[in-house]
């Protein structure tokens, strides 16, 4: 059974106008009907460009945003129905690692206070000695020196700060960690360290991950399953190797083709699909397939008036789900000559 099950989750933000009385003139459909599940000890990667709603989705799962509709089932409990004390209690089991380790840590708290706060909040460990042991344990786990305790976040480098962010999430011994762009604020060399740390921690502590990133390489490194989001919806989901080898959705194909290959010969010859135009507004998403305004393979029928649902396509090994009416045909066809 899956540890986290997201069913038809939507997060719509109202757009209000008016000088005196606010009236709602529309909604930004940041997340619009997303369903996926993560098995216990699994690692699910969510990719998409800026503004596609992946962070909002992560926050809605954490209940930092209020979902408009749909359910988030964690270990048999519907998180969207929780309030107050029970919601706070749930936070022990589901923790989040944030993008920017500088702004996501309270500048006023030193490392010890940051870590102890979690223990106090959830009543973990009995007595000061036991709590100190837990703190020391988590520092070792994330590779921070013991003398970090009395120091403040601004006294650390970016990579170390992210280690504090991870330690902070780990200290309450959660099962699920939602990592929202955990490395995008870091240098490339540090990114690898943090990703390896995340992978090690998953192995040693039996964690389940939801990793949100815009970088395909990052997601591929740490996740077994990858979901691709475009304008609030999942457009494709597959095993990570499968997804990179045979991307079926035109959007995924464009994303994968944008990753440079470290071989000049291949780099010169390989297919490159360049998408034109900007991401449409989530307040007024295109009709039919959300991607039809930028799709190089757009057809006159169905694409503009019928919204494609995620459907399973057999590509051999595992479940490969894609939301495209013409996935099979497009997979067989070469890239359009002029896009």
């Amino acid at each position: 059974m899956s540890l986290l099950q997201v069913e038809d989750l939507s997060v719509h933000f109202p757009i209000t106008r008016g000088a005196l009385l606010n009236r709602t003139v529309g909604h930004v459909r940041a997340v619009d009907g997303v369903s996926f599940s993560i098995p216990r000890h699994g690692a699910y990667g969510l990719v998409g460009e800026s503004g596609c709603g992946k962070s909002t989705l992560g926050r809605a799962i954490m209940r930092l945003n209020t979902p408009t509709s749909g359910t988030v089932t964690y270990d048999g409990t519907d998180l969207t129905a929780l309030h107050g004390r029970r919601l706070r209690g749930m936070r022990r089991h589901v923790q989040m690692v944030f993008q920017d380790p500088m702004s996501s840590l309270d500048p006023r708290q030193n490392v010890e206070t940051i870590l102890l706060e979690g223990l106090h909040t959830h009543n973990i460990g009995s007595g000061t000695a036991a709590r100190r042991a837990l703190v020391a344990d988590v520092l070792d786990a994330v590779g921070l020196p013991r003398n970090s305790l009395s120091r403040y976040p601004h006294e650390f480098s970016g990579g170390q700060r992210q280690r504090i962010g991870i330690a902070r999430a780990l200290i309450v011994e959660p099962d699920l960690i939602v990592a929202d762009e955990p490395v995008s604020a870091l240098d490339v060399s540090i990114q690898a360290q943090i990703l390896n740390l995340l992978a090690d921690l998953q192995a040693s502590r039996g964690l389940t991950y939801l990793i949100i990133a815009h970088d395909l390489a990052v997601v591929r490194h740490v996740s077994r399953t990858v979901g691709v989001m475009y304008l609030g919806s999942l457009v494709e989901e597959a095993d990570s190797d499968d997804l990179y080898a045979t991307p079926l959705h035109p959007y995924t194909r464009a994303l994968v083709s944008a990753v440079p290959v470290p071989d000049p010969d291949v780099e010169d010859r390989r297919e490159r699909i360049i998408l034109r135009g900007d991401l449409p507004s989530a307040a007024a998403p295109p009709s039919g397939c959300r991607f039809h305004t930028r799709c190089p393979w757009v057809r006159d029928t169905r694409c503009k008036d019928e919204r494609p649902l995620l459907r399973t396509i057999s590509t051999g090994a595992t479940n490969h789900r894609v939301a495209c009416h013409w996935a099979e045909e497009i997979a067989a066809a070469p890239a359009p000559a002029s896009v």
Binding site: R59, M62, L64, L87, R88, G89, M90, R91, R92, Q95, M96, F98, Q99, D100, S103, S104, L105, D106, P107, R108, E117, G118, T121, H122, G165, R168, V172
Partner: peptide
Amino acid sequence: GTEHVRTAEAKGLTDAVLRRRHVLRN
């Protein structure tokens, strides 16, 4: 609006603690 208040919320702090410790003092 800062991220660390969101972090504090994700920690599972009660509103009163969040307010006093993380919002007001900052």
